[in-house]
Amino acid sequence: MLKLRKDFQRFVSPKAMLCHGIFKPHNEILIHKLGLSIVKLMYNKLIPMQLKIKRYTIASLLHIKTIILICNLLSIITMTAQTKFEKEHRTKAEHVPVGATAFIRQAFPDKKVKWYAEESQDGRTYEAKTCYSKIKHSIEFDPAGRLIDVERKVHFTSLKKHTQNHITSALDSLFEKYKIIKTQIQWKGNPEDLLQSIKKQEKNKLSYQRYELVLKAKKDNAFKMYEMLLDSIGTVEKFLEIKQRPTDNLEF
């Protein structure tokens, strides 16, 4: 009985949800208090009920999965976006950490690469931009020259059908209307695996893949621009509002 309670607690508690990838501990995601209180309420209500079950049955597991899915949906519905902060400027290769330039030389030996120094809510980074296999690539490094991620600009419709469906379901829950402006596939992993992925233009089994979207969307009766990071089952890992620069000089 105690084991079952512990298992359930491990599986359904908010901490467990972080482990299962349902709520990501990303500082960009703000889960509304209401969403959390509903999760807590369901958890408290369900524990005694689960205690009555002597054994871990398939039915109880399905029940738990349904709860998790509902919680996932609630977390999406009650999600609010933080404002994106990003400042970047062109920089020369000689001002970039050696590790970063070495990786780029290996990955794109004959390609012209533009370097940018960036400051955002994630800290200071360096970004290399180039075009390889007719696809725009952005490769981000930390100040020590360690690889952070590789992003490839693609068309949303080129993603696998089931991924498209999961992502659009998540977006449908969040927004009244939306239009995807930009889609990037993001790869993370160790540099060797990512080097292979770049060469083959295919995700290595050991690296993981996320989808970064820039979209124009209507939420709370107002159209805004957003940047989002989702996984292939539509879990939102990053949700930022892109503040538009004043457009007065183009309008008046």
């Binding site: 400042k87 970047e88 400027h89 062109r90 940018y116 620069r245 000089n249 183009l250």
Partner: peptide
């Protein structure tokens, strides 16, 4: 009207 930054990808 067309506007483009003289450095970087956007005007900061």
């Amino acid at each position: 009207a067309l506007e483009r930054p003289l450095s970087g990808n956007k005007v900061d």
